[in-house]
Amino acid sequence: MSDKSIGVIGLGAMGRGMAASLRRAGWRVHVCDVRAEAAQAFAAEGGVACGSPAELAAQCEVIVSVVVNAAQTEAVLFGDGGAAVNMKPGSLFIMCSTVDPNWSVQLEARLAAQGVLYLDAPISGGAAKAASGEMTMMTAGTPAAYAKAGGALEAMAAKVYRLGERAGNGSKVKIINQLLAGVHIAAAAEAMALGLREGVKAEDLYDVITHSAGNSWMFENRMAHVLAGDYTPLSAVDIFVKDLGLVLDTARATKFPLPLSATAHQMFMQASTAGYAREDDAAVIKIFPGITLPPGAAGA
């Protein structure tokens, strides 16, 4: 497979690891990022740096987009220097962002009009699993799109779920995952805050909960950040402002009530407005009054 080229646009926490996983699997990986230095650093390790999505698309028939949201995906495809201008009929665009499912459906149709295949393929698992090729992909698309992907999906992910033969279900399942993730983080922060308020040592509470029925993956992962007083953004507060907003927008269209999601969304909104927007999403704990957080927690 060493002669097969693939492009990765977006070298953030997830995209960088995905590009590395593809390279380990034998692909010739072309990369592009708004930070030219990120692309050059990857090229120094054996990849190929491109100056724009259009330049990348001219060299790759399969493109993996790992940007933050729908607006950035639009820019990657249709903005100045966008990939769409150089995407040939029969080429494939794999969209890995968390977006409105209806927008993903529309993008599939828009690309189909120029003969380009599309996979609705949001991702989950965090930077560590992306780097090891062990993340989860929630995908939907035509049989032709899957065929064009070859082994690329399996090179990036340990679990590749095929959820339908047209776009939409991949994004629907991803936002439901984000519903749970956001609510779990908010609940974990609330529980830790109550423990601190009641005078329980944070490390004692963490140890007990992580060995008891009340534990969750998010409690174990995110409250470790609180114990360390480290809010370096692995996933920022504003990611859940966006993602829970997508959850609520989707449910609102069919008048479906989501009381826990709405409350968690307000908690992340409060944290964002209070100045913690770019901190790790565990910083939602900082909205609770009258508690003393472990040392170092006051900083960004």
Rank of each mutant, 00 (worst) to 15 (best):
D3E: 14
I6E: 01
G7V: 15
V8M: 01
I9Y: 00
L11R: 06
A13K: 12
M14E: 11
G17L: 13
G17A: 13
M18Q: 10
A25I: 12
W27I: 11
R28G: 15
H30K: 02
C32D: 09
D33T: 02
R35S: 12
R35Y: 10
A39D: 04
F42R: 05
G46I: 09
G47R: 05
A49M: 07
A49Y: 09
S52T: 15
S52L: 13
A54F: 03
A54G: 07
E55Y: 09
L56Q: 11
C60N: 08
I63N: 10
E74K: 14
E74P: 05
V85E: 15
V85H: 07
M87T: 04
K88M: 05
K88D: 06
K88Q: 11
K88T: 00
P89N: 13
G90Y: 11
F93N: 01
V99N: 08
D100R: 07
P101K: 03
N102D: 15
S104Y: 03
V105A: 11
V105F: 09
Q106Y: 00
Q106D: 13
A109N: 12
Q114K: 12
G115D: 14
G115H: 12
L117P: 01
Y118R: 08
P122Q: 04
K129G: 00
K129L: 15
A130N: 04
M135A: 08
M138G: 11
M138P: 05
T139P: 00
A140T: 01
G141Q: 08
A144Q: 12
A144S: 06
A145P: 04
A147L: 06
A147H: 09
G150R: 08
G150A: 03
A157S: 10
A158Q: 15
L163P: 02
G164Y: 11
E165N: 15
N177V: 04
L180F: 12
A181E: 02
G182N: 01
V183P: 01
I185A: 03
A189N: 03
M192I: 10
A193M: 07
L196A: 01
E198C: 02
G199R: 13
E203C: 09
E203Q: 08
L205V: 11
L205G: 06
D207W: 08
T210Q: 08
H211R: 15
A213L: 15
G214P: 07
N215S: 14
M218E: 10
E220W: 07
R222A: 10
M223G: 06
M223K: 04
D230A: 08
T232Q: 09
T232R: 05
L234A: 04
L234P: 00
L234F: 08
V237S: 03
D238M: 11
I239F: 03
I239T: 10
F240D: 06
D243T: 00
L246V: 01
V247Y: 01
L248A: 05
A251Q: 13
P257F: 01
L258H: 02
P259S: 08
T263K: 12
T263D: 11
A264L: 07
F268W: 05
M269S: 04
M269W: 05
Q270P: 02
S272C: 03
S272K: 05
A274R: 14
R278H: 12
E279A: 15
D280S: 02
D281T: 13
A282E: 06
A282F: 02
A283G: 07
I291V: 14
I291C: 00
I291L: 00
T292L: 15
P294T: 12
P295E: 15
A297H: 02
A300N: 10
